[in-house]
């Protein structure tokens, strides 16, 4: 019972359809304070629809959502007060300054004047915009706008911060700054729900990750647990000239190969004992009529897990 009370977010059996499209299908997840939970999946997997329901923007067709012990619905103001939302698209007013943007949303969340003033300064500092606080947001660089977008979401001190692909279209430097901010928020006890289709971000930030495909969570766990679903296998990437699909099919016939998939001119194989199997692998590719121009052997990552589970690459 104590475990249940500790969860900031408890979503159970969420379903949402748009016409014939089942956008979200039986999605369940929980997030504890200080935990960063990642929804990893390609565009169109159902991540944004899921968080729209969790943030109270959409009513689920089925399922329940509790935030900080309160049921979330589109009219549940108490539950909404516990959530900070950072939408995928920028959600700031370009004709207002950074400070005015923050103040406006702070007032909407009912922050008392003194607290609002204090939080404004704190958040501006966290997102690195103190020096530009009174400049129009429309004059900011893309990265600065993204940081302000995040700042608005965390201004009112939510229990649950939802970040929907917050680094899309951001330069590497700003991206690092954003990821640093998210890491810091989690250490302060905030529960974070983070959606991304960047495997590196999920690996770096998330304590637990749900791999989402076609509206369903196909696997969930820590990075280590997810990678373990592949087993003690190596990933061998062969860059080939010729028919990559035929080469992948040839590789898959070998007993040491548990899966082989072709992506453009690359064949990605999960191999038991790469060192021993590599000569045979190269021979099979050659026999299929393709030639190998590059070989890479490494430990598997979440990209490989996704590929293994869905047969698709994690990309746009």
């Amino acid at each position: 019972m104590g475990q249940v009370a500790q969860q900031v977010l408890r979503a159970t059996g969420l379903r949402k359809a748009f016409g014939a499209l089942q956008a979200v299908d039986e999605v369940s997840l929980t997030i504890a304070p200080g935990e960063t939970y990642g929804l990893l999946g390609p565009n169109g997997a159902g991540k944004t629809t899921s968080i729209s329901m969790i943030a109270g923007l959409l009513k689920p067709d089925a399922g329940t959502i509790e935030v900080d012990g309160r049921t979330m619905t589109p009219t549940a103001t108490a539950a909404k007060a516990a959530v900070g939302l950072v939408p995928q698209d920028l959600a700031i007013y370009p004709d207002l300054s950074a400070r005015e943007n923050l103040r406006f949303f702070g007032r909407l969340y009912g922050l008392p004047k003194a607290e609002l003033t204090r939080r404004l300064d704190e958040v501006l500092s966290v997102i690195g915009l103190t020096d530009r606080a009174d400049d129009r947001a429309g004059e900011f660089s893309g990265g600065m706008k993204r940081r302000l977008n995040i700042g608005v979401g965390m201004l009112h001190g939510p229990k649950l911060l939802i970040l929907d692909e917050p680094t899309v279209g951001v330069d590497p430097q700003s991206r690092n700054a954003i990821l640093d901010s998210v890491e810091e928020l989690a250490t302060e006890g905030l529960a974070v729900l983070y959606t991304t289709h960047y495997m590196e971000e999920a690996e770096r930030l998330c304590d637990r990750i749900a791999i989402v495909d076609q509206g369903r969570i196909v696997a969930e766990g820590t990075r280590r647990e997810l990678i373990a679903t592949i087993g003690e296998q190596d990933v061998v990437r062969l860059t080939v000239a010729g028919d990559a699909a035929a080469a992948a099919a040839a590789c898959e016939r070998l007993p040491a190969i548990s899966s082989a998939d072709a992506e453009d001119d690359v064949v990605v194989c999960l191999v038991d004992g790469a060192a021993a199997a590599l000569p045979q692998l190269l021979a099979e590719v050659a026999a299929s009529g393709a030639s190998v121009s590059g070989v890479e052997v490494r430990e598997p990552d979440l990209e490989d897990v996704f590929l293994h589970l869905t047969g698709k690459a994690l990309r746009d």
Binding site: G56, T77, K80, L85, P87, I92
Partner: peptide, 15 residues
């Protein structure tokens, strides 16, 4: 158009 509607709807206010 500005993208701020989701944020307004997510705020603890009546639509």
């Amino acid at each position: 158009k500005l993208g701020t509607m989701p944020r307004l709807l997510a705020a603890p206010i009546r639509p």
